[in-house]
């Protein structure tokens, strides 16, 4: 019965992500990873024993620990990915600002 709540929650999350894309609050590209995780969450809610099965294959005794490890690893990868993107964006903003300054100076001279 508890699964029903999680299934419902997963569907709500998927719908909310799609709604955010529709309203252009979230880009299609960024939404991919969130939709992917929501679908995984939905599948785990429908087949809750699948995590036990995976834990058995990998050799983890306590299945919920495996689930939490997956969550932490996912969030770390996501965080690293965002840090990577922020660094690149910072570099590009600097480039743009310098280019604007040079152009402004050139423009003033032409006047």
């Amino acid at each position: 019965m508890n699964n029903l709540y999680f299934i419902f929650l997963s569907i709500i999350i998927i719908l909310y992500i799609l709604h955010s894309v529709r309203k252009e609050h979230l880009s299609i590209k960024t939404s991919f990873v969130w939709i992917l995780m929501s679908v995984v969450m939905l599948l785990l809610s429908i087949f809750p024993y699948s995590i036990n099965w995976i834990a058995q294959i990998i050799g983890v005794e306590y299945a919920p620990a495996l689930f939490l490890t997956f969550c932490v690893v996912f969030l770390l990868i996501l965080d690293f990915n965002f840090s990577n993107k922020i660094s690149k964006l910072q570099e590009k903003v600097t480039d743009l600002a310098q280019e604007v300054s040079v152009l402004r100076e050139k423009n003033n001279k032409d006047k």
Binding site: L18, V21, I28, F32, I35
Partner: peptide
């Protein structure tokens, strides 16, 4: 990417 974008654009 293309497949995902097509589906999301349809839903959008």
């Amino acid at each position: 990417e293309q497949l995902y974008t097509c589906i999301v654009i349809f839903l959008k």
